[in-house]
């Protein structure tokens, strides 16, 4: 397994399951965080020269960034104002507020580098298997991270933060990036989140990098409003009644619930699941059945779903299965 930079590791998590052709809100937030990840990566590799509280990109970084095109995009965009940017927090703010055109260039540079390594690919979006999209012939593409790398990155992060001992700087930065991009809840259960919060508070008190990162927010305008809405929803779903609602409306819509119509009304769950699996695999998705039963749990391209038998009622009832994204832990 090859070593990846912080930006590459974070991008593999943040881009997985996101639409590759359209600029959705979750993807825009992810791209802002990826731009900030480039700055953190350079900072960790001593790519800045310090003078009091001011940071300036070293000449070496300016020369070498060409070898990594995704760094080049950010460095070129910010180098013009190199003198006046200030401390690390200002660099992060400036990088994360770059215009959408630069974010698109960053996305294509990062995605290309990961595609060249064979660890990121574009596949038909899972929404394309939904009854309404499938029958309308709408084609949507999404990114998919190689499952081996996705699991390795997320499991290393979980081990490094949940275990006793000092966390690596990459983990400190990754937690912040995941928090800012709204991905953190995908990897930790509610109980684990309490441990993670305690660890992040301890890091904030004792780790210089965490002190800067954890006090910095990457949010803007409309996105901030959406975050606030999700926060309100998160509070609501902590109640028993709210947990029921969460089954229907996932906490953060980075993944979507979809309805897959089956060819007929099957007499048993196994035949129904087989039909759904065939549909998904015909669209290029990797499907693993984690648990059988009346409501099976399946994993489609790194995202876990409850496959709930369901029917849509129009002039005639259409039987099928609704896939509802599920927290894996």
């Amino acid at each position: 397994m090859m070593d990846l930079t912080l930006t590459q590791s974070f991008s593999l998590i943040a881009l997985n399951g996101q639409r590759s052709l359209e600029m959705t809100v979750p993807k825009k937030v992810a791209l802002r965080c990826m731009a900030a990840a480039v700055i953190v990566e350079l900072y960790m590799e001593n790519g800045f020269t310090h003078s009091q509280t001011q940071l300036t990109l070293s000449q070496e970084v300016l020369d070498q960034s060409r070898s990594l095109p995704y760094r080049d995009v950010i460095v070129k965009s910010l180098a013009r104002k190199n003198e006046s940017i200030g401390d690390l927090r200002n660099w992060l703010r400036r990088a994360s507020s770059l215009p959408a055109s630069t974010l698109k260039k960053l996305e294509s540079a990062v995605a290309q580098s990961l595609r060249n390594e064979g660890i990121l690919e574009e596949i038909p979006h899972i929404l394309g298997s939904d009854l309404y999209f499938h029958t309308a012939g709408v084609s949507i593409k999404e990114y998919r991270t190689h499952p081996k790398y996705y699991t390795s990155i997320t499991e290393f992060l979980r081990a490094d933060i949940l275990e006793d001992g000092e966390a690596a700087d990459e983990t400190v930065a990754m937690l912040w990036l995941l928090r800012e991009s709204g991905c953190l809840l995908d990897f930790f259960s509610r109980n684990e989140m309490e441990q993670v919060s305690a660890k992040m508070i301890a890091l904030y008190k004792g780790n210089a990098l965490a002190q800067v990162l954890y006090a910095t927010q990457i949010r803007r305008g409309m996105e901030l409003g959406i975050k606030q809405y999700f926060r309100m929803k998160k509070k609501a779903i902590k109640t028993p009644v709210g947990s029921g609602l969460n089954f229907v409306f996932p906490v953060l819509e980075r993944s979507q619930a979809i309805f897959i119509d089956t060819e007929k009304m099957f007499p048993n769950p196994t035949a129904r699941l087989h039909d759904v699996r065939t549909r998904l695999e015909s669209k290029g998705h990797i499907v693993n059945v984690l648990k059988d039963g009346d409501v099976p749990i399946i994993k489609v391209d790194n995202v876990i779903y409850d496959a709930v038998p369901h029917a849509v009622y129009g002039r005639v009832p259409i039987h099928g299965v609704r896939l509802i994204p599920k927290c894996p832990f």
């Binding site: 081996k148 390795s152 290393f156 979980r158 081990a159 490094d160 949940l162 275990e163």
Partner: peptide, 18 residues
């Protein structure tokens, strides 16, 4: 090695190794 590094070396889940 740490448990996190074992995760990378053996492609196992953290919860499994724990």
């Amino acid at each position: 090695v740490s448990i996190g590094e074992l995760v990378r070396l053996t492609e196992s889940r953290y919860s499994t190794l724990k």
